[in-house]
Structure formats: C-alpha cells, structure tokens
Simulated scan of single mutants.
Amino acid sequence: MNQTQQILFDEPGPRARRRIRIATVLGAVAVAAGVAWAVHQFGRYGELAAERWQPFTTWPIWRYLLDGLWATVRAAAATAVLSAALGLLLALGRLSERRPLRWLAAAYVEVFRTVPVLLLIYVTLFALPQYGINFSLFWKLVVPLVVANAAAFAEIFRAGILALDRGQTEAGLAVGLRRGQVMRLVVLPQALLRLAPSLVSQLVGLLKDTSLGFVVSYTELLYSGQVLSTYTHLLIQTFLVIALIYLAVNASLSKVARVLQARNGRPTRRRTGAPEPEAPLLISGGTAR
C-alpha cells in the first residue's frame, strides 16, 4: 500500500487480510445463493416471462428513464460542486490558527456528520416554508445533500492536507511565501491530487443519496421508476432495470476511482524510460539540499 492509500486508513496486516479474503468469499457465496433463489422465485411466479419485459425494449420507456437519470445526474453534480467547495472551506477552517474559526468548523462537521440526510430534507420541506423560505423541488433535494455531504468532504480534505509532509509548508515559508500562499500554491494542489480517488468514491455515495428525491417529488431516477411501475404495473421489472442503471453508473465511477488510485501510486517515468530527476524543493517533501 502506497502513501496515497494510507491517507484515510491503515494497511491491514496478514491476519486482517486473511479475514478480509474469507469474508469476501463467504459474501460472494451468499450473494450468489441469494441471486439464484431470487431468479428461481421470479421464474416460478412468471416474472421472467418475455411479455413482462417487452415494454423495456421500446424507446418511450427508456426515454422516460433516461430523463430521470439526467435529473439524478444534475442533482448529483450540483451537490458535488457545492459540497466540495463548502467542505474545502470547512477543512481550512478546522486547520486555521484562529480558535473560534476552528471551533465553528469542527462543530459543523461533527453535527452534520451525525444528522440523517432524510431529517434535513424534512426540514427544507416542512420547517423552512413556515419562515418564508421555500425552495424549488430541485433545491429542496440539493440543499440538504450539500449540508450533509460538505461535512464528509471536509474530513476528506483535512485528512489529505494533514497527510502531506510538513516539509512542504516549511519549505514554502522558507522561500518567503505567506502561509495562505503556501496552502494555496503548494499544499492544496498536492492534497487534491492524492485525494482524487477518495473524492470520486464519495461521489458514488452522493449519487445514491439523490434517490431521496422521491420525498420531495423530484423526478430523479428512482421516483421516475415509481411512477412508471404504477403506470405499467411492472414493479419488479421496473426496479430491476433501475437497479442495473444505478449499478452501471456507480461501477463507472468506481472504475474511475481505481484508475486514479493506480495512477497516483505508480512511479512517474520519462518517455525514454529513464527515471525522473529529483523533484524541486516544494514538491519533494524533503529538506533543502
């Protein structure tokens, strides 16, 4: 395990790896048995009949589902951008030398990491309108997700910044940069590069959280599936298709995270195959030579 992978968790030992392998095998066997039993039951009650799947071979059905997927992507993208921006500010606040700012940022993170997202959605749906704050359906979903996910992003950013060698900051201060400039020009670029896999992985959970849009009647993918199943009376088929769509999208994001993780852990080489020269002072993490 390289340094990038050790930012948020420790490397498991031999016993832990053995337990992980055993748990993985048992889990795979359990999942396979569950899938086999489900397929058997579906076939027994006629749910696998061709006529019950025929509607999903038509374009109008898929266009409706893709519209729901697009609404899901829009909500997830808006939440990701705003959560990351607010999370970065909170992480910098927790690392600030000003004690009141540290306390406020820490209080926000600790509170909203424990409050359920569904409760925050209920606040925007029922409580805020009583005080004249009434968002559109889109923002009734996005605002609670931003409030909750900003705390998670803050901890990811803070862990990445603290994982960097202190020599980075000391070298920047030594060449005359102010502390804010060191953070902006030296520390943050390296932390963001190392944290890219973790940030992408966070997007997977964020995308799944958008399924709570059914609470506010926002027509994301899951809510679109509920409406479609009511219209077609194909409950099992509809939600199996939606599950496959979620699986495809989240698997793609997970693949991106693995690729970024592999690239961050791979040593950089010149195109000629010769090793790279030593990095400059502000990138190497070492002391002046």
Rank of each mutant, 00 (worst) to 15 (best):
M1I: 06
D10P: 08
E11Y: 13
P12E: 02
G13H: 02
P14Y: 05
R17F: 03
A23L: 12
T24S: 14
A28W: 05
A28F: 06
W37R: 10
V39G: 00
V39L: 02
V39F: 00
Q41E: 12
Q41Y: 08
Y45S: 07
E47Y: 10
A50G: 09
F56Y: 06
W59Y: 13
W70M: 11
T72G: 09
V73H: 03
A75H: 01
A76L: 03
A76N: 02
T79D: 00
A84I: 08
V109N: 01
V109W: 01
V115E: 03
L120W: 03
F126K: 07
N134F: 10
F135P: 06
S136D: 13
V143E: 05
V147A: 10
A148F: 09
A148Q: 09
N149G: 04
A151G: 08
E155I: 07
F157L: 05
F157R: 03
I161A: 02
L162P: 02
L173N: 00
A174M: 04
R178K: 13
V182G: 04
V186T: 04
V187H: 00
V187I: 15
L192G: 07
L195K: 00
S198Y: 10
L199W: 01
Q202R: 04
Q202I: 00
L203P: 02
V204Y: 03
L207Y: 04
D209W: 03
T210H: 08
L221V: 10
Y223F: 15
L228G: 01
I236C: 00
T238I: 06
T238L: 04
A243P: 00
S252E: 08
V256S: 01
R258K: 11
A262G: 14
T268G: 14
R270V: 01
E276I: 11
A279I: 08
I283Q: 14
G285H: 04
G286S: 09
G286R: 14
A288Q: 11
